[in-house]
C-alpha cells in the first residue's frame, strides 16, 4: 500500500546540512495499522510527512496505492493527496468554521456540490460520534472532540490511507483510549490503512498490528507488535517496551499463550494469604491427569503462607481440567477462568 524505497531527507540549515532520515525503507500493507515509534528528533514527523509529500524526499521513492508520489508535480500532488487523510497532534482545525464546516472543508476543495457535502458531513458526524455538535465552533469543544472533527475531516474524501501525527499526544489517557478505539473501529469497518507515529509504546500496543522503531533517522527494528513486545532486540526498543506497565506485558503474554493453546484453559488463582494454601497448589501441580504451565507468578510471602496471583495454563481432557479447577476452588483459593 505504502512503499518508501531508499528514502533520504537532508535539511539545509544555516549551520550546515542536517540529516533527518538516512536511507530508509518501509512497507505498509493494505488494511493494517502500522506504528512508528521513536523519541523526538528521531525523524518521525519527517517520515510521516514524506508519505503525503508535505516534505519532499532529498532522495528515494515514495509510492502510495500504486502511485509514485515523489515523481509528481505540485498540481498532481494536490489531487493524489485527497487519497491520503491526515490528523494532527494539535488538531489543526479552522477556528473560524463550525464542526460541520470544518468537516465540509476538504469536500469544498474537491468541488462537491452543496447538497452532497451536507449529506456526507452528516454521515461523518455520525461516524465519529459528534451528533448534536455540528454547529459548535472548535473553541467550544474538548480535545477529544476536536480530534474527532479532525478524523471526520480526514475521512471526508474516502481516503485509502490515514496518517496520524502524534494524534493522541495532547490528550488525557481516557480520551486517548476513546480516540484509539475510534481509529481501530474505522480501520476495521472501512478497511483503511493507518500509519501512526508516536513516542508512546502504549499507543502501539493498543491498536497497531506492526511497528517500526525509528532512531536517528533510520529504522532499527521492525516486526509485529507481539514479537517486538516479547523479544525486543535493540536497546532502544527495550526502553520503549519498558514504558508499558507490567500488567500490560502480562496481558500480552497471556494472550500469546491463549492463541498458541486454543484448547487449554487459562486460569488466574488468587491467594489471600490467610491460611496456608501450599497443599492446594501442590495437589494441582502434581495432578498427573493434567499438564500445568506457569505463565505468571506474582506471589509474596505472608504470615501463613503467601498471597498474590498465579496465572496458569492447564491442558488436558475437558472434564479432568474442570474437576481440577473445582478441586482447588474447594480449597478456598479464588479461581478466575480467563475468557478465551
Amino acid at each position: 500500500m505504502i512503499r518508501l524505497t531508499h528514502v533520504k531527507k537532508v535539511y539545509q540549515t544555516s549551520a550546515g546540512p542536517v540529516k533527518a532520515l538516512t536511507d530508509l525503507n518501509l512497507e505498509v500493507r493494505q488494511g493494517e495499522i502500522f506504528g512508528v515509534i521513536g523519541y523526538s528528533g528521531a525523524g518521525k514527523s519527517t517520515l510521516i510527512r514524506l508519505i503525503n509529500l508535505l516534505e519532499r524526499p532529498t532522495e528515494g521513492r515514495v509510492e502510495v496505492a500504486g502511485h509514485v508520489l515523489s515523481a509528481l508535480s505540485e498540481k498532481e500532488l494536490s489531487r493524489e493527496r485527497k487519497q491520503i487523510g491526515m490528523i494532527f497532534q494539535h488538531f489543526n482545525l479552522l477556528w473560524s468554521r463550525t464542526v460541520a464546516e470544518n468537516i465540509a472543508f476538504p469536500l469544498e476543495l474537491s468541488g462537491l456540490s452543496k447538497d452532497k457535502r451536507k449529506k456526507r458531513v452528516e454521515e461523518l458526524i455520525r461516524l465519529v460520534g459528534l451528533e448534536g455538535r455540528a454547529s459548535s465552533y472548535p473553541s467550544q469543544l474538548s480535545g477529544g472532540q476536536k480530534q474527532r472533527v479532525g478524523i471526520a475531516r480526514a475521512l471526508a474524501n474516502n481516503p485509502a490511507v490515514l496518517l496520524c501525527d502524534e494524534a493522541t499526544s495532547a490528550l488525557d489517557p481516557k480520551t486517548t483510549d476513546s480516540i484509539l478505539q475510534l481509529l481501530s473501529d474505522i480501520n476495521r469497518s472501512l478497511g483503511i490503512t493507518i500509519v501512526l507515529i508516536t513516542h508512546e509504546m502504549y499507543v502501539i500496543n493498543k491498536i497497531c498490528h506492526r511497528v517500526a522503531v525509528l532512531d536517528k533517522g533510520s529504522i532499527v527494528e521492525e516486526g509485529t507488535v507481539r514479537d517486538i513486545f516479547l523479544s525486543p532486540q535493540q536497546a532502544i526498543t527495550k526502553e520503549f517496551v519498558g514504558q508499558v506497565a507490567a500488567p500490560l506485558k502480562q496481558q500480552i503474554r497471556i494472550e500469546k499463550f491463549q492463541s498458541a493453546n486454543p484448547d487449554g484453559k487459562i486460569v488466574q488463582l488468587h491467594f489471600d494469604g490467610k491460611t496456608d494454601q501450599q497443599p492446594a497448589v501442590d495437589r494441582l501441580l502434581h495432578n498427573q491427569a493434567i499438564r500445568v504451565t506457569i505463565i505468571v507468578s506474582e506471589l509474596a510471602p505472608s504470615q501463613n503462607g503467601f498471597y498474590g496471583t498465579l496465572v496458569l495454563l492447564i491442558n488436558g481432557h475437558q472434564d479432568t481440567v474442570q474437576s481440577a479447577i473445582d478441586q482447588i476452588r474447594s480449597e478456598s483459593v479464588k479461581v478466575e477462568v480467563l475468557p478465551s
Binding site: 494536490s78 493527496r81 485527497k82 494532527f88 489543526n92 472543508f105 476538504p106 476543495l109 474537491s110
Partner: peptide
C-alpha cells in the same frame, strides 16, 4: 496557525484555495 496551513495542504488545497479559504 502554520499547522492549519499544513493541514489544508495535506487535504490537497491549492495555494489559491489556501489564501481564499
Amino acid at each position: 496557525d502554520k499547522g492549519v496551513i499544513e493541514a489544508s495542504q495535506s487535504m490537497g488545497a491549492t495555494r489559491f484555495q489556501i489564501i481564499w479559504k
